[in-house]
């Protein structure tokens, strides 16, 4: 029996693939969790999870590894989202690890690299066995070889040389006690797919993604905001600029871009015309070295 079914466009196909991944993990793991930063990729994850299990609730909690270097708009957004969807939120405060001596503040004040230990400790403490992240393969060359379901050993380490082959859509998430898997449901999405889908689905994002006025200073070619993490040094001076953020991260090393884009249409036009990838433009931690991301992933970073 052949009968016409509507052809799936690219966004429908990506959505269906992501929903399939969420349901596989819900069916095979005992204690999954979604890593949530308040950024657009993790917000998209939550949106897809809601659609995967509707009309029931999302059957797992969120985990926010909080650097303490936050934008109030993002925390406010996070709390409203959690309440609206009736989710459970776990927060791992990097500050707690610094306070009790398990971590030491870096000389440059950046806390992005400090997130790995609180993340792994929280995974152990809560016995999470599957950790959803918003990583996409188009972000970076090391990520291009990441599996959709990717095994981490008891130390949270990724071994790119001994990854399991991923065949058809049969995911193998078997692991020993103490090991866990990282799951990347939006592996196959590009940055533009994410934005177009957010527009199509009318997904709410934190306001800092849209152009706004903000006092900022220039460092290493990026516009940084002042905050608890510090402010301008030497000849750096504060200026008020119309900016927006392309990613949400540690405020000490996540730069804003000058932009007048106040709507999703304008953001998409801007992203489409952009000549820099989102990480290269705005994440100082990825610029540290050619192999920066691979090294951090090996150690158990997101």
């Amino acid at each position: 029996m052949t009968r016409a079914a509507p052809v799936l466009d690219a966004l429908d196909a990506l959505e269906s693939e992501s929903i399939h991944i969420f349901r596989e993990v819900a069916g095979e793991f005992d204690r999954p969790v979604i890593l949530f930063s308040g950024g657009k990729d993790s917000t998209l994850l939550v949106h897809l999870a809601v659609k995967a299990f509707a009309p029931a609730r999302v059957p797992f909690p969120l985990l926010h590894v909080d650097t303490g270097h936050n934008y109030p708009e993002v925390i406010d957004f996070r709390d409203r989202l959690v309440e609206r969807l009736d989710l459970r939120l776990e927060v791992a405060h990097v500050q707690d690890w610094i306070d009790d001596g398990r971590l030491v503040e870096r000389p440059d004040g950046t806390r992005n690299p400090l997130q790995t230990v609180p993340l792994l400790d929280s995974i152990n403490e809560h016995r999470f066995d599957a950790v959803f992240g918003g990583g996409r393969r188009d972000e970076e060359r090391a990520r291009a070889k990441e599996r959709i379901i990717s095994l981490r050993d008891a130390f949270g380490r990724w071994d790119p040389r001994s990854q399991r082959p991923e065949l058809w859509n049969l995911y193998n998430g078997r692991h020993s006690p103490g090991e866990h898997v990282r799951v990347f449901p939006i592996s196959n999405w590009t940055e533009l797919d994410v934005w177009r889908y957010i527009r199509r689905e009318n997904v709410e994002l934190p306001s800092i993604y849209y152009a706004h006025e903000r006092p900022v200073f220039r460092r290493d070619g990026m516009w940084l905001a002042e905050g608890p993490w510090g402010g301008p040094r030497g000849n750096e001076t504060m200026e008020t600029k119309t900016v927006r953020y392309r990613t949400v991260g540690d405020g000490s090393c996540t730069g804003a871009v000058e932009s007048a884009a106040t709507t999703l249409d304008e953001i998409i036009a801007e992203v489409a015309a952009s000549r820099l990838t989102e990480r290269g433009a705005t994440r100082a931690d990825d610029r540290l070295s050619e192999a920066a991301m691979e090294d951090r992933k090996r150690e158990g970073y997101f």
Binding site: R141, T190, A291
Partner: peptide, 24 residues
């Protein structure tokens, strides 16, 4: 070099693992 993503691949000038790429 746009494609060879892992450090060992760049050092040895070979591609080791399946890599996924996106364009439109």
């Amino acid at each position: 070099l746009l494609v060879d993503g892992l450090r060992a691949e760049r050092e040895q000038g070979i591609t080791i693992d399946v890599a996924y790429r996106y364009f439109a």
